[in-house]
């Protein structure tokens, strides 16, 4: 992927409404390696914005405008074709798969051969200090370990943009800074445009980028 095609994430005149009621409007350009923080109280439609970008928005919401990633219009593209990674508040590791199985789930199928795939997974685990964890049951990991596995699972799928839905809010203070730094460093290193949704000011400060405040709270958000 040459840098010429790296345009980042564009939200062009995006307006989301529900039952004729305007929920949020945003027009922005998140450049590669940049973090845009979206802040707002609960119910303000932060998660709805993420679901619009990732492509899983509930049909009850009306969406105008378009989302472009590296110049490509994502309208009508299903989530699996968008190459947008997402991290939630919970790690949402698949409980029926091992740690290695979770990572393999997101690894693109064009990396062929059992050995090559396993090597890629081992390397990824090593990168976040979890060497030898491939066979573990995700339920036996600590909170910080789970967060790192979730991050690597997402990165292995080779996304071209990153969405963070309050991903640090469940971690305790010490762990929180550590995981946060790891995620932002990974995003910067890979030049991923990143959109962080949070209601926590320290997260916004740590992200270091621009902050976009959205709307007044509405019941339907």
């Amino acid at each position: 992927m040459s840098d010429a095609t790296r345009d980042g994430l564009r939200l062009e005149g995006l307006v989301v409404s529900h039952g004729g009621h305007r929920l949020l409007a945003i027009d922005d350009h998140v450049r590669p390696g940049e973090v845009l923080t979206v802040m707002g109280p609960s119910g303000s439609g932060k998660s709805t914005l993420l679901s619009v970008i990732v492509g899983t928005v509930d049909p009850a919401f009306a969406v105008r405008g378009r989302v472009r990633l590296d110049g490509r219009d994502l309208t009508g593209v299903p989530p699996e074709g968008r190459r947008i990674g997402i991290l939630f508040q919970e790690e949402l590791l698949f409980p029926h798969l091992s740690v290695g199985g979770n990572l393999a789930f997101g690894l693109p199928p064009d990396l062929r051969g059992r050995a090559a795939r396993q090597a890629r997974i081992e390397a990824a685990l090593e990168e976040v200090g979890l060497t030898g964890f491939a066979g573990r049951d995700p339920a036996t990991l600590s909170g910080g370990e789970r967060a790192r596995v979730a991050l690597m699972r997402m990165l292995l799928s080779e996304p071209r943009a990153l969405l963070l839905d309050e991903p640090f809010s469940r971690l305790d203070a010490a762990l929180r800074a550590q995981v946060r730094d790891l995620v932002f460093a990974a995003a910067r290193a890979r030049g991923l445009p990143t959109l962080l949704v949070t209601h926590d000011a320290t997260d916004a400060a740590a992200a270091g980028g621009r902050v976009f405040e959205i709307g007044v709270p509405v019941a339907s958000g």
């Binding site: 990732v54 899983t56 997402i86 939630f88 949402l92 693109p108 997402m154 799928s157 996304p159």
Partner: peptide
């Protein structure tokens, strides 16, 4: 959502 964002 996670699984689909991972390409499934």
């Amino acid at each position: 959502t996670v699984a689909r964002a991972l390409g499934s």
